[in-house]
Write a protein that binds this DNA or RNA. Sequence first.
DNA 1: CGGCGGCGAACTGCATGCAATAGAGTTGCT
DNA 2: AGCAACTCTATTGCATGCAGTTCGCCGCCG
Lengths: 244, 244
Amino acid sequence: MPRGDAAGSQTTKATLGLRELVFAGELAPDERVPEIGLAERLGVSRTPLRLALATLAHEGLLRSLPGGGFVVCSFSLDDVADAIELRGVLEGTAARFAAERVESESELADLVAVTEQLDAVVGKRAPVLERFVELNDEYHRALVGLAKSDAVGRAIANVVALPFASPGALLASQAALAREQEVLVVAQHQHRAMLEAVRAGHGARAEEIAREHARLAMLNLELVLRSENALERLPGAPLVRHAV
Amino acid sequence: MPRGDAAGSQTTKATLGLRELVFAGELAPDERVPEIGLAERLGVSRTPLRLALATLAHEGLLRSLPGGGFVVCSFSLDDVADAIELRGVLEGTAARFAAERVESESELADLVAVTEQLDAVVGKRAPVLERFVELNDEYHRALVGLAKSDAVGRAIANVVALPFASPGALLASQAALAREQEVLVVAQHQHRAMLEAVRAGHGARAEEIAREHARLAMLNLELVLRSENALERLPGAPLVRHAV
DNA sequence: CGGCGGCGAACTGCATGCAATAGAGTTGCT
DNA sequence: AGCAACTCTATTGCATGCAGTTCGCCGCCG
């Protein structure tokens, strides 16, 4: 089926597999990625693997060495914080664009539906975190879609490629934390507030809420840092340089 | 010298050449890019060319077709406006980060030097636009550097990959316009203001100035749209879908 | 005993051959 | 005549072979 990099292509297989390997930490950060062994490990040839390596490099997960080859990037806690803040900025822009561009209530249908589902989940006595993360991602996707901007969409996609920067990343890692429910309530409050701001065409407010919403992830990061076992649940944790 | 994608590598050659071809409009937008003829046209083999195609696709200049192969992206005027606005948002973040993170005056040395050189150019009776664009680019690079954030730097690099979104793009295209000098004066005023805001640690102000500074490019875009011959000087003009 | 130079091996980057597919053109059937 | 199916070709995606280079190691010299 050598036409199209559709789902079944070798390149896709290599990219997904490689990303998984990196996230799982099976390839040590700051260490040369062996091109040969990796090819057979992923069950693909070197050519599509090389394409996958280039892709991950563009996503910022790998770095190409001057001498050739690639290394897995490692990230300091400051890097993680920056990525989260940047996501906030970009989602803020998306929210502002949405507020400025949405013309009819019908366009908001998806976002409204997701928000109501989130309400239901949070309203439960024991919210299912998994379900919340899922809906949360959906909410963010819908919001970005309303911005109607390829440029913004691509920029966000690039940032979210860093696993720990994705919307639900730090939620998933704090399952065992005490303030979990509290965070959920606040997050959902912001979801509703953003929806209202967008609906009312209040771009500046929507933007600020989105930024603050992302900073919730930074709060989570701080909470997670205080409990060692939670840190391990952080997606892409092996890439983060623990403070020594 | 088959090690390292250093300056002389075939992949680099292919990437630069391909980008040039796309910017020049030699490859018609929305048309399939022929992989075979292109290889010999660029003087490289198909393998590095394919890597270059993937790179440009990541930069948003090409789009991979479901059936395989690539097409050159075309951009509506709204897309151009979005890209410029997004650059403003990102440079705003860079400026804010710079204001929040710069600790000593010595870090500002480069930015100060460039600003003074720009002052000199603008102060001339007949400013040399070329020189201004050059220094302008340098100013923006220096500012982004002060943000000390890889994530922000990479995001900006991605947006600027669209030629018409780069800082000096719309300046270069309006060489023949009447209000040229006026724009230069305003731009340089904003450069100085940003520098002051960063120096004073006024993040919010620095951010807002940077956004407004980018919107100067949008003003230029509107000016350029009114004079047909100027539009042709816009970098990457062939990619822009002229309003029919 | 430490530093330097040469040698070897392994790995990367590139070129090309092959196979499979999608699209177009054509032909036959209704 | 129109539609559909079939064939054929051009083109892409993939695999592998080859060449060049860089890094590590060992021996040699200071």
